[in-house]
Amino acid sequence: MLSEDPRFYGLITVALVTVLLTHQRLGRDLDDMRWQHTIYSRTVNDTYGRPVALKLYQGKVLLIVNIASRCGLTLTQYTGLQELIERYEDRGLSILNFPCNQFGGQMPESDGQETMDHLRKEGANIGHIFAKIQVKGRKADPLYKMLTLNQPEIEWNFVKFLVDRQGKVFQRYGAHLEPSALVDDIERLLK
């Protein structure tokens, strides 16, 4: 039997409103937590040292690669990355390249003009170029710590991470895999 006391209905109304508001707040908090676990929550520096918020790439499919200029894989990887840019950039693929000198000193060029001159000399239009970073170990860049959170450390130059439009890692590919082998997965994510 329901109470005829008007205070009872007032208490029920307050309780329902409190539950609804708490539910909405928890939903927003959950969305914020999801955001923090995407690459879009990160800021990196471009090759000239300017900060770039990765949220600028939100809604795009991303291929993140640690590059090196003097690796035995360099020329075939550059060619493959350029082919992906030419084929998919207009459809929403962006390639984010992070020079790294951790593997046999194979990226000796300094950031900025020296790196850009190297890429021009090689005719390598491979996407966006960021500052040289470490991709493994204690001093690994926070972006790479996030990328490798559930996987082993980066083993060599040209390890590739394909990231979906929501900023989540879709797949990791080894250094020796040529970029053309990613076409099916890129197509799937671009649809």
Rank of each mutant, 00 (worst) to 15 (best):
T115E: 12
W35E: 12
H128Q: 13
V163H: 00
Q166D: 15
M146I: 04
R91S: 13
L62N: 09
M116Y: 06
L75P: 05
G49Y: 07
G72L: 03
Q166I: 10
I12M: 12
D185H: 12
V61Y: 05
R25C: 09
D31R: 13
R34E: 15
K168A: 11
N150K: 10
D185Y: 05
V52Q: 10
S94W: 10
G174Y: 06
G80F: 01
V14D: 12
T148H: 00
R70Q: 15
K168F: 13
R91D: 11
S41T: 01
L11W: 11
S110W: 08
L147I: 00
F98Q: 00
Q106R: 10
L96Y: 07
Q113Y: 09
E4T: 13
Y57L: 10
T13A: 15
F98T: 03
A124N: 00
Y40W: 07
R138W: 10
G80A: 05
E109A: 08
P108E: 04
V183S: 13
R165I: 03
T18I: 11
Q102H: 07
V159F: 06
Y40V: 00
F170L: 07
Y88S: 08
I12T: 06
Y48D: 14
V183H: 13
C100Q: 04
I64K: 00
D32L: 12
L147N: 01
F158I: 02
V65Y: 02
F8W: 07
T148W: 02
V52K: 11
Y144S: 03
E83R: 15
F170Q: 08
L189Q: 07
F158Q: 03
Y78S: 03
A68K: 03
L189A: 05
R87S: 08
Y9M: 08
L84R: 02
I12K: 10
Q151V: 09
G27K: 12
G59T: 08
L177W: 06
M107D: 15
N125P: 05
D29T: 11
K191D: 11
S3M: 07
Y40I: 02
G27C: 08
Q102F: 02
I64P: 00
V183P: 04
S180V: 12
V61H: 06
E122M: 15
L2V: 14
G72D: 05
F158S: 01
A175Y: 04
A15T: 12
I126Q: 03
S41A: 14
N150I: 02
E155P: 10
G10D: 14
G72W: 02
T43D: 05
I12A: 13
N66V: 01
G174H: 08
S69P: 05
I95S: 04
K55Y: 11
H176T: 15
I133C: 10
P51V: 09
L149I: 07
Q58N: 11
H118A: 12
V135E: 01
P152C: 05
V19C: 11
R25H: 12
I67H: 02
P179G: 06
T43M: 05
R70P: 03
L182V: 00
F170T: 03
L93V: 06
Q171W: 08
A68D: 04
L177T: 14
N45D: 13
T76H: 12
T18A: 15
L81Q: 01
I64N: 00
L177Y: 06
H118Q: 11
R91E: 14
